[in-house]
């Protein structure tokens, strides 16, 4: 399971996973359509901003914010926790362990392979957003967009690594999916998914700054809607990657202790 083998196997794995995503495209589109929450929130916040702007958010800024939320969510979401839970309980995990590549790499590859399909939804949404709010709402500095790319990678990693950590709990617990439910509810509240974090009272905002949720979604959204200058964005992304490293350690430990307990069902 050397790194060289993993790199060599990667193109094939990506190709296979992509064909799989393509084969179940109708199902996939339904999954995409379930991401209605940003639009529901947009309706609420447009109604709030219809008379006067809230802070720096008028209706246009809210539209930009929530459409960005939709796009970031599409491109960074992870289903590792549910998939691992299913595979452990149904014994499919043993097939994965037989392959000469670390299962966590193959999970990651499956996520990456679904990206083109997600772009099919995200790009038109971006075009709509651009048409509605105008290019002036976006940051013009190319360096900011470079930092944005780093923040997107970090956001995906936070989601994926928590997914893996919680997924590893299914080696110990029957109901690890419920743990994910709790994480998700917290994510909804503290990530900027339901409202821009800056609208929170400052005491709560300081707590949220030290939780991982905001870096999983809110940060890229804030960067692409022009909330930071270069230094501010860099500082926030540095904090984000701190969480990435922390979760990487956690996921590795969870995997190592979990896999020792695994015995394939029916094996």
């Amino acid at each position: 399971m050397s790194l060289r083998n993993t790199v060599r196997a990667m193109p094939v794995i990506l190709k296979v996973s992509f064909s799989e995503a393509l084969a179940y495209r109708a199902e996939f589109m339904i999954w995409v359509l379930t991401t209605t929450m940003p639009l529901i929130m947009l309706a609420l916040w447009s109604a709030v901003a219809s008379e006067a702007p809230v802070g720096r958010f008028g209706q246009t800024q809210f539209t930009a914010y929530f459409l960005s939320t939709f796009i970031v969510r599409q491109l960074t979401s992870s289903w590792a926790a549910w998939q691992m839970n299913y595979e452990v309980r149904h014994g499919v995990m043993s097939m994965r362990l037989l392959k000469p590549i670390h299962p966590l790499w193959s999970y990651a590859a499956e996520h990456w392979a679904a990206l083109p399909m997600r772009l099919v939804v995200a790009i038109p949404m971006a075009a709509i957003a651009l048409a509605v709010v105008g290019a002036r709402q976006l940051p013009s500095d190319p360096a900011i967009w470079g930092i944005w790319c780093a923040s997107m990678a970090g956001a995906w990693l936070i989601g994926f690594l928590t997914g893996v950590t919680v997924g590893c709990l299914s080696f110990h617990l029957e109901s690890s999916v419920k743990v994910m439910d709790v994480w998700f509810a917290l994510f909804f509240m503290a990530s900027g998914y339901l409202f821009p974090i800056v609208l929170l009272p400052s005491a709560i905002r300081h707590v949220v700054d030290w939780l991982p949720f905001r870096y999983q979604l809110g940060l890229p959204v804030e960067i692409m809607t022009g909330a930071y200058d270069r230094a501010g964005a860099l500082w926030m992304v540095a904090r984000q990657w701190g969480f990435v490293l922390l979760l990487l350690g956690l996921a590795t430990i969870a995997w190592r202790t979990g896999i020792k307990r695994f015995e394939a069902y029916g094996g």
């Binding site: 609420l44 709030v48 008379e51 109901s175 419920k178 439910d181 509810a185 909804f188 509240m189 339901l194």
Partner: peptide, 30 residues
């Protein structure tokens, strides 16, 4: 599951409550 489902139900109700609280913090009526 009773305990877990109960806790999750409360938590989800709170997720619906929080945006309302934040929004009504800005306006008396929406």
């Amino acid at each position: 599951d009773f305990v877990i489902d109960g806790a999750i139900s409360v938590l989800w109700a709170v997720t619906a409550l929080v945006p309302l609280t934040v929004a009504f913090g800005e306006r008396a009526s929406i």
